[in-house]
Design a protein around this nucleic acid. Structure first.
Length: 809
RNA sequence: GCGCGGAUGGCGGAAUCGGUAGACGCGCGGGACUUAGGAUCCCGUGGGGCGACCCGUCCGAGUUCGAGUCUCGGUCCGCGCACCA
């Protein structure tokens, strides 16, 4: 405790962050301060942060940012009176973990056990977040993945999981199938090997059924705009038309193409079928089959830059549905067999790719929309229709509708909506994931494993390496694979693929409140109480896949009456990216900050504060080693000021106004995650109170306010000081955030600038709200202004209350 | 290429509505305390000028009494998507 010294200065214990932080960590844990009352809570608030996938490297700052930023928000909600549930867990299954285990030659189960323990005990528990460890989840634990399997079976039983063959991306290096979104520019996102195409029977979840709903519901969500935009682009709705072309010279009678520009139909000079179209052969005259197949098998690998010289004329003809003209049919890889109908009508005059292709192959280019010079390049804008029979002169926008109408009359076309979104391929021919709980029976087909047989435990195997044959290592475990069919009892085989890690994380938020139930995945009452998540914080790298899949799963459970709302995350904020001395932080650059060293040296409070002060939370900032020095100074001030400020009952109006203004600013800033500016206000206030305390005029109430407002940011030191200054209970107690009076928070005196022709020449201090006339009068009385005007009459005097007076001469 | 952000002192960043540009912090300069300080505290700190003043928010126009903020055009950087017809 503080003791007065002869000089009037006071000697205090030094602030020992290591001692203070370990002391309170222990007390909070023993007391169970952050164990949440999950049943019948008062004002429940579900505060979620994206859980990490444990790696041997340990947590890096990229993890800490959401954990610290999310926790500040949660602690603030708690102080504001909510019952905050803030759980944490581990995304321990998946290729990341498995690849690491392979690298070091240990079993992934062993590696993960060690990594999870390290994350939790040595790292997560140190950063001062109020995680409720009684409700942690670990996706690789049978008590969790039992329910992941159950979730899959619910989708299966709803007809939303399908076993079908499809062209899949095969990474020859990772020896597994990749989802489309794991392929970047034709290469594996993990190892950058060029991806090959293979055809396998696999499990797909039919998220495409929900494309429109998922798109529409974005409007109801309070999410970062950037995230919503990315989801919209990913779903990729486009409006256009499907148009039927008859075919001649091949076994197939007709083909439907999809276009967003039906108004350009008269400019269609050829058709292109995707080189990967599954029924490409049906478009080819018999005598050309050999040539086409030879061409197809020698296609160059997909590259970043499309090559429009690649293509082959098939020999068949297509009949233009309006003119009856015969146009050639080509195949080319620039058309995707998997999007739309897998074939297009090429309008080279008005589509850049078609233009390039036509140029490369000397195909005719016919202008049908005015506005450009199609001999030079494709014109993709709007204009008037030409060379289009009776449509000539019609604006293209109207033409889109009218051409569709015309096609409808002859049943050769209709309006159509397409989405880029594809079904979710969840099969992985790997070891480290939940086995897909299906038994394949020769008679009954794919049969669900009965609920009472869940979990389908991942068998212990010595060799868990990917086989490279397209089959999971599980297939080699004969005694595990061979089981009787649950329906008919005849010999059958288990599904040997495991599911995608995004399925694990697609429902974990539903599990947290119900981890103490082992008979259901999520308890009805708990789910109704806690879902949807009130605040979700994480990185924008998961803006599309994780968030979209989670929305899909929640939506399905809502339809089934098992979830209270269709959307899982009411509010989502993506944290910004942290750069290190101007360069993006990444393992390959070797500039990843290891938080442990900083926490050792400065303590968790300083580290949290520092990271939050670098810039706006949702934008990011530049982590520079040197700048951290300001934070210990700040906390030192708080340490001293709060123990020395002891003046009671001094109703000092300016200080009260200052205090109320501070509360309002910090409150407003935290609500919008503007932690950096909230921290600056607290620093200013701490400096003032510190100086007052040194002079014997520091007020106890100011010190208390400072500790309360700082508590979400620096939970340890504020708790210690709360105790040292004689308070009972915890500084973090629910509902103890200081109130502020809006009237008092408003300044009473303001400084108004006086400008002449927009240049500042003087300032005047007046009561807030002083009238425009008063401002004008006072401004014109200023000696500086009188001198500057030198008798001239102002042309105009503009006054804005509380802001400015501008004299125009 | 398309979409979305961004550009402010030596550095990270502030600046509700168009109203004193540079809050807060780092760094730097000066001072205090001290045997000492790389601890702590105080003062100063956009550039130029002795000065009244002048110039300053990526560049160029514009709107306005007034623009970091709004409009148009351009440059550069970041992120996302990327042959999606």
């Amino acid at each position: 405790m503080a003791t007065a010294s002869v000089s009037g200065r006071t000697r205090l214990d030094d602030y020992d962050h290591a001692a203070v932080e370990s002391k309170w960590r222990r007390i909070w844990e023993d007391r169970g301060d952050y164990r949440t009352q999950l049943d019948a809570p008062d004002r429940p608030f579900y505060n979620l942060m994206m859980f990490p996938y444990p790696s041997a490297e340990g947590l890096h700052v990229g993890h800490i940012i959401p954990f610290a930023g999310g926790d500040i928000f949660g602690r603030w909600r708690r102080l504001k009176g909510d019952t905050v549930f803030e759980p944490m867990g581990f995304d321990a299954f998946g290729i990341h973990s498995e690849n690491y285990a392979l690298k070091i030659g240990e079993h992934p189960a062993v590696v993960m056990r060690r990594a999870v323990n390290n994350f939790r005990e040595n790292q997560l528990k140190r950063i001062g977040s109020m995680f409720d460890w009684d409700h942690q989840v670990n996706t690789a634990d049978p008590s969790y993945y039992r329910w992941t399997q159950w979730v899959f079976l619910q989708l299966f039983k709803q007809g939303l999981a399908e076993w079908r063959e499809g062209a899949v991306n095969w990474c020859p290096s990772c020896k597994t199938v990749l989802a489309d979104e794991q392929v970047e520019g034709g290469k594996c996102e993990r190892c950058h090997t060029v991806v090959e195409t293979r055809f396998l029977r696999q499990w797909w979840l039919k998220i495409t059924r929900y494309a429109q709903e998922l798109l529409d519901a974005l409007d109801t969500l309070d999410w970062s705009d950037s995230t919503k935009t990315m989801q919209r682009n990913w779903i990729g709705r486009s409006e256009g038309a499907t148009i039927l072309f008859d075919l001649e010279g091949c076994t197939r009678k007709d083909v439907t193409v999809y276009t967003t520009r039906p108004d350009t139909l008269y400019g269609a000079t050829f058709l292109v079928v995707g080189a990967d179209h599954p029924e490409l052969e049906d478009f080819v005259p018999r005598e050309r089959l050999g040539d086409v197949n030879a061409w197809r098998n020698r296609l160059p690998p997909v590259r970043d830059e499309p090559d429009f010289s690649v293509g082959i004329e098939l020999g068949s003809r297509a009949v233009h549905p309006l003119t009856g003209e015969r146009v050639p049919v080509w195949a080319a890889p620039y058309v995707l067999g998997g999007y739309g109908t897998g074939a297009i009508m090429a309008v080279p005059a008005h589509d850049e790719r078609d233009w390039q292709f036509a140029h490369a192959h000397a195909l005719p280019i016919v202008e049908v929309i005015t506005g450009g010079d199609v001999a030079q390049k494709a014109y993709t804008g709007d204009g008037l229709m030409v060379h289009s029979d009776s449509f000539d002169g019609m604006p293209s926008e109207e033409g889109k509708r009218r051409v569709i109408e015309k096609l409808r009359e002859s049943r050769r076309g209709e309006a159509s909506v397409q989405y880029k979104l594809r079904d979710w391929l969840i099969s992985r021919q790997r070891y480290w994931g939940p086995p897909i709980p299906i038994i394949h029976c020769p008679d009954d087909g794919p049969v669900a494993v009965p609920d009472e047989d869940l979990p389908v435990l991942l068998p212990e195997v010595d060799d868990f390496r990917p086989t490279g044959t397209g089959v999971s290592p599980l297939a080699t475990v004969e005694e595990w694979v061979n089981v009787p069919c649950p329906k008919c009892g005849e010999p059958a085989r288990r599904e040997t693929d495991v599911s995608d890690t995004f399925l694990d994380s697609g429902w974990y938020f539903l599990r947290y409140p119900s981890t103490d139930f082992d008979d259901v995945a999520f308890d009805e009452e708990r789910t109704t109480t806690w879902l949807p998540v009130d605040m979700y914080i994480g990185g924008n790298e998961h803006a599309v896949r994780h968030l979209l899949y989670s929305r899909f799963i929640m939506r399905v459970f809502h339809e089934m009456g098992m979830a209270p709302e269709p959307e899982p995350f009411t509010r989502f904020r993506a944290h910004g990216m942290l750069v290190f001395s101007g360069a993006k932080m990444s393992k390959s650059r070797g500039n990843v900050i290891n938080p442990d060293e900083y926490i050792d040296e400065y303590g968790a409070d300083v580290f949290r504060l520092f990271m939050m002060s670098l810039g706006p939370y949702t934008v990011g900032g530049d982590f520079s080693d040197e700048a951290i020095a300001g934070m210990p100074r700040f906390l030192h001030r708080v340490w001293r000021a709060s123990q020395l400020a002891s003046v009671d009952d001094a109703y000092d109006e300016p200080k009260e106004r200052r205090r109320h203004r501070l509360i309002k600013r910090v409150d407003d800033d935290i609500a919008e995650l503007r932690y950096n500016t909230a921290i600056s206000f607290l620093m200013e206030f701490a400096r003032d109170v510190d100086q007052e305390a040194a002079g014997g005029t520091g007020r106890r109430i100011d010190a208390e306010t400072l500790l309360k407002l700082l508590a979400p940011f620096a939970p340890f030191i504020t708790e210690e000081l709360w105790e040292r200054t004689g308070h009972d209970g915890s500084v973090h107690d629910r509902g103890t955030w200081p109130d502020h009076d809006a009237e008092l928070a408003r300044p009473q005196r303001v400084t108004v600038a006086v400008t002449v022709n927009g240049k500042r020449r003087a300032e005047i201090e007046v009561d807030a709200g002083a009238s425009e006339d008063d401002l004008r009068r006072l401004a014109l009385e200023q000696p500086r202004i009188v001198a500057l005007l030198a008798g001239r009459e102002p042309h105009d005097v503009i006054a804005v209350v509380d802001r400015i007076v501008n004299i125009v001469v």
